[in-house]
Design a protein around this nucleic acid. Structure first.
Lengths: 244, 244
DNA sequence: CGCGTCCTTGAATCGGGTCAAGTCTAGTGG
DNA sequence: CCACTAGACTTGACCCGATTCAAGGACGCG
């Protein structure tokens, strides 16, 4: 048994890895770095050569438009692979900021190249997970483009919930959001004021409840209905990956 | 010189390929199939095992929400790789319909697996391009979440324009849209009525002009400004890919 | 010629944004 | 232990951009 990294652990949830593969992945996490809440990890438009594995805490990626408004693109959880854009662009298309105190493990993109060369199976797996991210992105597109404010909030909460559950088995029906209502709004294309209205409404209707930053989903079925949510994590099927 | 496939041709725009790689890619396109405008290539939620290379024409992917509204996720052009979702999901997350008469080359996902196994460099390249798609998806997210109707139309037109130019060098300032205004609306989260109003307004302001389905961009600079558009195709940098 | 699809335009409506004025809470320092 | 403060949450009144509804026009095709 080799010491498994945070990233390898995430990947083995999908498909078994050989020890050699695990060791290689662990190398990516040799340089953990502590990050304070609110600190910027990467600034949009600046040259980049690093990627990251998020080991602890939460990180968000976002862009700021010329009029000053912000679109949050994604919230990352421990085990996530961050900054894959730097594999293709020499300048960062998006900014990265820690939403909570966090630990990230930066590594050079050439280290990733070597990994892909030496472990084609890992390359294939990363390709697949990149496709999965693309699909979850399309779900959000549909949410922003075609659903009401209430539906977006519902879908957002469900997405957080199910993603957290992938790595944390003891989450039953509640979780720490760790995002302000303004940040929620910036994720789903609403103002903080309207996010607040929707959340209160959903609380009054008995869909959710809150106590100091913790959200409890009281009626997941109805939330899924309101948010037009489909849980993609269920029917993933990576069987066809090259055998190890 | 081996006969290059449509897909290989697309890839070599980014990075040189060996003859062996080209041959392998060409194999994916052994079974061209003609598709009529409007025909469904893949229906959301149905089992899938096939992927496609689009050789001719245009194809769109979309989802229909329970209330009947449609979100178009992406418009594909010749040389594009379609349906990468089937690498991870056994049921299609999105539908595929031909926007014009088209030729697609279906291939089994196991053929892709063999390709990834035998040609790790191609696997890495696909991983990169998948990342590029993810980035262009985030651009659209920001557009839908945080910009006005006019900005979205401008960004949409510029995106079509620049993507067509990647493969077609003789496009100077005009192109065939081949989408109805309703389809444009379903791409950018607007109604066809409002798309029409924005297009007419932009026409009156001298930003664009139209004649029987052909759009001419008269003032690209100002359009980019209005649409908060950034052309991602320019500063792609795939140099670090494993050497062939 | 007639029919269907797409485009165009106006009027009324509404969802969500904006502005503004609180309230609540966790820190902070005296 | 309490006053002070800053950031986040809450709520109301008003406004505006986009949708909805509806009706007509243009064009291509069988």
């Amino acid at each position: 048994m080799v010491a498994t990294s945070c990233f390898a652990e995430q990947l083995t949830r999908h498909v078994p890895l050989s020890d050699a593969e695990k060791t290689a992945l662990t190398k990516l996490e040799e340089n953990p770095r502590k990050i304070k809440r609110g600190a910027m990890i990467q600034r949009a438009n600046e040259p980049i050569t690093e990627l990251f594995v998020l080991r602890e805490g939460r990180v968000m990626s976002f862009v700021i438009l010329p009029d000053g408004s912000r679109q949050i693109l994604r919230v990352y959880f421990p085990g996530d692979f961050i900054g894959s854009a730097s594999t293709i662009y020499s300048r960062a298309p998006e900014s990265l900021v820690a939403l909570s105190d966090a630990v990230v493990c930066p590594f050079d993109k050439h280290a990733l190249r070597r990994l892909l060369e030496e472990h084609p199976r890992v390359a294939a797996l990363l390709f697949l997970l990149s496709n999965a991210e693309r699909v979850s992105m399309t779900d959000r597109l549909a949410s922003l483009g075609r659903t009401s404010a209430k539906a977006r909030v519902a879908a957002f909460l469900l997405d957080m919930f199910h993603r957290l559950r992938v790595t944390d088995d003891n989450i039953k029906d509640s979780f720490e959001l760790k995002l302000t209502q303004e940040e929620i709004g910036d994720s789903i294309g609403l103002t903080s004021v309207h996010v607040n209205r929707m959340i209160r409404q959903m609380e009054q209707e008995g869909l959710i409840s809150r106590s100091n930053g913790r959200i409890t989903l009281l009626d997941v079925k109805r939330l899924e209905d309101i948010g037009h949510y489909t849980n993609r994590h269920k029917d993933m099927d990576l069987d066809w990956l090259p055998a190890s």
